[in-house]
């Protein structure tokens, strides 16, 4: 009873703070200076049509490198924590084999899903979407295969190779920017091209594709690690 009262009191206090924030909020009419800079200079600086992509990959590219590192760490820890989770012995139930329909359906859909994922991250600098969304879609192909046949096992060597290779290339492109252009992860090592074309915006499509592959491999390894706890 005291517990519940404390919780409610805490939430009431937080609610008071939040309502003060809400009622004291006055929306801006103009962009603030940072946003106005991004809005006005993105095309000249990076040549990307999608300003959010330009911020993620170029202006704050170092943050994104940190982000994929955090994601890699959490995938690695999930794998580590669950690796000893699989118990030896136990009720080794014979799994029901997947039916013809599931087999064929998943075989038909997987290439299409992979194609959609690649399309989304290759076009990240032109349309909404990018490496993180495309990577999640790549991982959903893994998910589909796992749902169709829970006993399917993926090659960890392949996932690991894909993950570390794209991470390495990402850092190498960043270092090339340091050598050939203005700084780490500068995208002007390649020509900026004309706005709105696929091969524009310098190194942004390249970097975002590498991020997409890396994120896809990381989520896939998380899902594979979770699935492998099932059987002894």
């Amino acid at each position: 009873m005291i517990r519940r009262a404390t919780v409610l009191l805490l939430l009431l206090g937080l609610g008071g703070v939040f309502s003060a924030l809400l009622f004291g909020y006055t929306p801006d009419d103009e962009l603030n200076r940072t946003a106005a800079y991004y809005a006005g200079q993105t095309v000249r600086d990076t040549g990307a049509a999608n300003i959010v992509t330009a911020i993620i990959v170029t202006y704050r590219g170092l943050d994104t490198l940190g982000e994929v590192t955090v994601l890699f760490l959490s995938a690695a820890i999930v794998g580590l924590v669950l690796a000893h989770g699989a118990r030896a012995g136990g009720a080794r139930r014979r799994p029901i084999p997947p039916g013809e329909l599931l087999e064929t359906g998943s075989r038909l859909l997987t290439p299409l899903i992979l194609l959609l994922g690649v399309h989304i991250f290759v076009n990240g600098h032109l349309t909404p979407g990018g490496g993180f969304q495309g990577g999640a879609i790549l991982a959903s192909a893994t998910l589909l295969l796992l749902l169709a046949n829970p006993m399917r096992r993926f090659s960890h060597r392949l996932i690991r190779l894909l993950e570390s290779l794209s991470g390495l290339l990402f850092v190498l492109i960043g270092l090339l920017g340091l050598l050939l252009a203005g700084g780490f992860l500068d995208n002007r090592i390649l020509p900026l091209g004309t706005l709105g074309e696929l091969t524009s915006a310098g190194a942004i499509p390249l970097i975002y594709s590498l991020i997409g592959l890396k994120v896809g491999a990381e989520f896939s390894s998380m899902l594979a690690a979770l699935a492998e706890t099932q059987e002894p």
């Binding site: 959010v52 969304q133 999640a136 998380m222």
Partner: peptide
Amino acid sequence: APDVAMTEAAIGSGLTTFLFFFILAR
């Protein structure tokens, strides 16, 4: 915010729900 919408739909709504169900099934 179409970028955020795509991310939330693919990652926040799709993958997270499946992670929960994987653990729940175990």
